[in-house]
């Protein structure tokens, strides 16, 4: 079966995000005074062949091994059957 997977990788809470801070400063300078916090993460779109019983464990393993660094990053994912293959 073909799946469309989205993986979101974000810095763990409490880990400094220099990029987010820079963007926050810039937004404030643009006049968006209400901006209180900006955190920058990554989104990855993955299409892959797998089986219903193993797709989630594969995705989790991919996140743990490579896509996220568990020391400083958290990850989330969504898994959907691909609509058009």
């Amino acid at each position: 079966m073909t799946y469309d997977i989205q993986v979101f990788v974000t810095l763990k809470e409490g880990v400094l995000d220099p990029q987010g801070n820079a963007v926050q400063t810039s937004l404030t300078r643009l006049g968006y005074d209400g901006v209180q916090n900006v955190r920058i993460g990554k989104k990855m779109d993955i299409r892959m062949e797998s089986e219903p019983e193993k797709v989630e464990s594969d995705v989790r393993e991919m996140c743990e091994k490579l896509l996220a660094n568990p020391v400083i990053e958290d990850y989330e994912y969504t898994i959907e059957e691909a609509l058009s293959v």
């Binding site: 810095l11 880990v15 400094l16 220099p18 990029q19 820079a22 660094n69 020391v71 400083i72």
Partner: peptide, 15 residues
């Protein structure tokens, strides 16, 4: 990254 040493690197504080 290989886990031979503890911790991780982030972007420099001043970017």
């Amino acid at each position: 990254e290989a886990g031979l040493l503890p911790g991780a690197m982030r972007r420099n504080k001043g970017l």
